[in-house]
Amino acid sequence: MHRVEHVMGFPVSLRIDDEPVPEGAADAVFAWLREVDERFSPFKEGSEVSRLDRGELSRDEVSADLAEVLALCEEYRVATGGAFDVRLPGRGLDPCAVVKGWSVQRAAELLTGAGISRFCLNAGGDVVVSGGPWRVGVRHPQLADKVCAVLELTDAAVATSARYERGDHILDGRTGLPATGLDSLTVVAATLTLADTVATAAFAQGAEGVEWAAGRAGCEVFAVLEGGRVLRTPGFPTAGERTAARVLSA
């Protein structure tokens, strides 16, 4: 089964290789992601995030889900010395950097909870796979029709933060300016919650974020610095590298 919908501002594709596919499993995934968009989008006036930001809700009144997301936001703000911050001066509360990976991981757990053992869930280029091995390409940051690495993943997640789709949209919370020093940074981890948040938090730190991400437990990293230099951790699961890389110390 293969299904694609546009949710939360990006395409989400779901491929399930199990036969038969449990009835309603795909519907549950896309219904959940639409619910997340309604509840957590800072661009929707009636969302829980917007209401909290306007002071209509207190931190004690938010849902358990939003409390979990905000706790992750605070964890990474502290861990990066403020480089990753969802409350930048002059801007409203925007936890999207955490919400995307967290919500797609939850969607993947809906599938495994339904007994599905082999699937690939791709949300705007961030991917969760079950079973395997699956081959996943990492887009070249300068050449849109090329890949710079091909991964071989089993029961894992991969996320990339970069400037090639949305420009300098990731800001360094310490300065309020666009993060510099990196063209792209890819993280492989057991969950997309971890992979996506670490990738964004590392990118916000600039080039120094590569070593920071490499030191996070359970994370493997592939980074392309400005100028084209490539760094990766020893365990980064490449099936066929397309770019020479310096291996970071374990």
Rank of each mutant, 00 (worst) to 15 (best):
A108S: 09
S41G: 03
R3N: 09
D168H: 14
E226M: 01
A199M: 11
I116N: 09
A199E: 12
S50T: 15
K100S: 05
P42W: 06
L93A: 03
T191F: 10
W212Q: 03
D172N: 15
H140R: 13
E152T: 06
S41R: 03
P89K: 01
L121H: 08
P89I: 00
G92I: 00
G235T: 00
R106I: 02
E226A: 07
M8S: 02
G124T: 11
R135P: 02
A207Y: 05
L33H: 15
K146H: 10
L33Q: 11
V29G: 05
L121T: 07
R242W: 08
G90Q: 07
L151K: 14
V12E: 07
S58Q: 03
T180Y: 12
L182F: 11
L151I: 05
S58G: 12
D145P: 08
G90M: 02
A202M: 04
D18L: 01
N122H: 12
A214S: 12
V12F: 10
S161E: 06
A64P: 14
V127I: 08
A202W: 00
L121W: 14
V69T: 11
A245E: 09
E68M: 04
E38G: 14
E5L: 08
L192G: 11
P178S: 01
G206V: 09
G90K: 00
A189H: 10
A195C: 06
R229T: 07
N122K: 03
L52C: 11
F119G: 06
A26E: 15
Q205R: 15
T243A: 13
E241V: 04
V136K: 14
L88Q: 02
L177G: 04
G173C: 08
L52W: 14
L185F: 13
V138A: 04
N122V: 01
A123D: 10
V158I: 09
A189F: 14
N122L: 05
E38I: 11
T186M: 06
T193A: 04
T175L: 01
G113W: 04
F10W: 06
D126A: 08
P133W: 13
A144G: 04
T186E: 10
E48N: 10
V147N: 10
L66N: 03
P89D: 01
D126N: 09
A108Q: 10
C219Y: 11
L231Q: 06
G215C: 03
L93C: 02
A149H: 12
A97N: 00
Q205F: 05
V147E: 14
V129Q: 05
Y164P: 03
G101E: 14
Q205E: 06
